[in-house]
Design a binder for these strands. Structure first.
Lengths: 330, 330
DNA sequence: TTGTAGGCGTTATCAA
DNA sequence: TTGATAACGCCTACAA
């Protein structure tokens, strides 16, 4: 491999000069700098990351820890984190929490041992992130005190409910999957908050990880719309509705969260509340970057608004006429 | 940070002795070795990856290149590659091909620059992987000459068709999404091969990336079963069938590929042909490991059998009685 | 069995 | 403007 030293030898100059010419730091005459750069290009010189890391104490690598890499959100997040990291000159090393708190601690440990400069972590449900030697950007939910940046799940919940109320829905079922998830809690809470504020005529909340909620009972209770805490649960409900011959969105509107890839392939396609993942990735990286470069001001924890994607699983309620949203505020 | 040097100083021994004691290579008296290890533990010593990489020329890091990190297969592959890599002491750096050949070359380049020891790559559809300085494990399809290890997509295709023939189906629609994909080509070809061999009474192949195939026309043509090249397409068809009130699996059986996460949440749940991802990851890593450790024999390219997962979207054809599979071989 | 010393490729300090 | 030199932390002949 060609090194700074071999270039120095080839050109009969010192390594320091080569280093300066290539990095543009020290003063080197334009003419010599040009010759050095040219030669470096010719021999295909690339600095050794190991040597640089050893000298500078920085690896230029960030870690990404996910609760479970088969988490459906992982691909999009990985995609955006990688892009954001790359544009700042960082590489991304992945690690899997293996779905438990111990695994999460181990994953962080492994990354730190590998010399990452910082870590982006999506913590496992219901865990507190353990402190480390390197800066940590936590992507979770506003209600997690350790949170660095996240989607505004609560606002997302309001958005989902609000959008359905705008269409005229008044009786809701709010369906979550796992009550230990702060993310899902916030989403359901946001929806409930919107209903309370705008005078929905009552709603039920149910948490169910296995079976789908009893749709027929819900319909009998006058429910015309369901807000689910994730697209996967929405999928379950949509399928259930179709086998029960409940028309969607005619008889029942359903909305999910996360904008998982299958949503647009469903028939009816799934309306959903999508996290602004590029923005989240951007902020997580800005945060780490600020901490790593010793910036005077570190970005404070922040939440990123979610985005409504209306597709075909939501529509006007059949039973009653569309009411003017303005009038319906009790 | 504690280093080999600081430990040597603390204990009044030489750095070489510490290094030997910790690595167990050179001869060090048991007693001294014990003291050194104990002290190392106490001060929380961990070797510097940068220094070790600089000295040994190996980073202990592998790259993982995907055509697009939002590819639905990515999570499971990343999960298993990371696990397999970790158990061999490697970390995994991700890179995104940004969905084109140029991006793919750039991704490889970036990883090599970062000093990875080897790369696992899932090539972009229809591209040939460019040669590099580091060993490359290619995960694609047997029909790609550069392939290192892959699922046996062709056998998977036979499996899908065979399983449906066992149930008594005879007329098939084989539906693919992208004919440029070697993977999908192999799957469809495998299914066709099985039908030809076992005397299906004819089948149509269609390639469609946007609209779903015309189900009514297919049914009119006597089709009772559809083999799709991916679960996403199967999902589209299932949804389509439900809106057209075509009973699945009563009137029509549908099977997909890849065992994507949503499949089990559908109603009816989706039968699928699943790649044995843990085994594929294992072999990809064995291959790289062999090449990196200069092993005498490098594992030859190999294909890993796919696994049938029968759920509820496949069943006996309605029209005709179940025929004995043995008798049905023409 | 233990210690000395050199070097991996960079960066940075200080002289020239 | 340029060069000599010393680290960074580790490994490994080779010498004691």
């Amino acid at each position: 491999m060609s090194s700074i030293k071999s270039i120095a030898r080839d050109l009969g100059v010192s390594t320091a000069t080569v280093s300066n010419a290539l990095s543009g730091k020290g003063r080197v005459s334009d003419e010599l700098a040009r010759r050095i750069r040219e030669h470096a290009g010719k021999v295909g010189y690339h600095p050794s990351p190991a040597a640089r890391a050893l000298k500078t104490g920085r690896s230029g690598i960030l870690g990404l820890v996910m609760p479970n890499l088969t988490n459906p959100l992982f691909p999009r997040l990985a995609h955006n984190i990688e892009a954001a990291a790359d544009s700042r000159g960082f590489g991304v090393l992945i690690a899997d929490s293996r779905s438990d708190a111990a695994g999460q601690a181990a994953a962080i440990e492994r990354l730190v041992r590998r010399g990452v400069d910082g870590i982006v972590i999506v913590p496992h449900r219901g865990t507190r992130v353990t402190e480390t030697d390197v800066p940590l950007a936590v992507i979770n939910a506003a209600s997690d005190p350790a949170n660095t940046v996240s989607a505004d799940h609560r606002q997302g919940g309001r958005l989902a409910a609000g959008l359905l109320m705008d269409m005229g829905h008044r009786r809701f079922l709010l369906a979550g999957e796992d009550p230990r998830s702060e993310v899902q809690q916030d989403r359901i809470a946001g929806a409930a908050e919107c209903l309370a504020r705008r005078g929905g005529t009552g709603h039920r909340v149910c948490w169910t990880s296995e079976a789908a909620p009893d749709l027929l009972a819900a319909l009998a209770g006058g429910v015309t719309a369901i807000v689910t805490s994730t697209d996967l649960l929405a999928l379950k409900l949509l399928s259930e509705a179709q086998t029960l011959d409940i028309a969607v969105p005619g008889r029942l509107s359903v909305i999910g969260f996360d904008n998982l890839p299958f949503g647009e392939h469903l028939r009816p396609s799934l309306s959903t509340i999508a996290p602004d993942v590029p923005e989240i990735a951007h902020r997580a990286l800005s945060y780490l970057d600020a901490r790593l470069s010793g910036a005077a001001e570190i970005p404070p924890p922040s939440v990123v608004p979610m985005i409504a994607i209306q597709r075909d699983s939501t529509g006007l309620p059949q039973e009653r006429p569309v009411t003017d949203p303005a009038r319906s505020v009790s």
